[in-house]
């Protein structure tokens, strides 16, 4: 029965997303070398990473990407 498959998939999606949301899978984990699950909010990306337990800031991060403001007039 097709509806069984839809119901199974809906339950799987519900359980996975509730688990991911409540355990905050997307958060930065302090002192963890791997941050594979980090999901930026509001375009706020990590500006460094752990190497041997120490946070190393990205070099030249202040001129990162040559950002000079966004918006409709950017790039003109």
């Amino acid at each position: 029965m097709l509806t069984k498959i839809f119901a199974g998939a809906a339950i799987a999606i519900a359980l996975l997303t509730i688990t991911a949301g409540y355990t905050q899978r997307s958060a930065l984990v302090l002192r963890a070398e791997k941050q594979d699950n980090y999901w930026p909010r509001h375009g706020t990306g990590l500006s460094g990473g752990y190497r041997g337990g120490t946070w190393i800031l990205l070099p030249n991060r202040s001129s990162y990407g040559g950002f000079r403001g966004g918006g409709p007039s950017a790039g003109k």
Partner: peptide, 14 residues
Amino acid sequence: GDVIASAMKEAWSE
């Protein structure tokens, strides 16, 4: 006082 994590945002208003 050591930085143990950081995240960066490029904000603008026009």
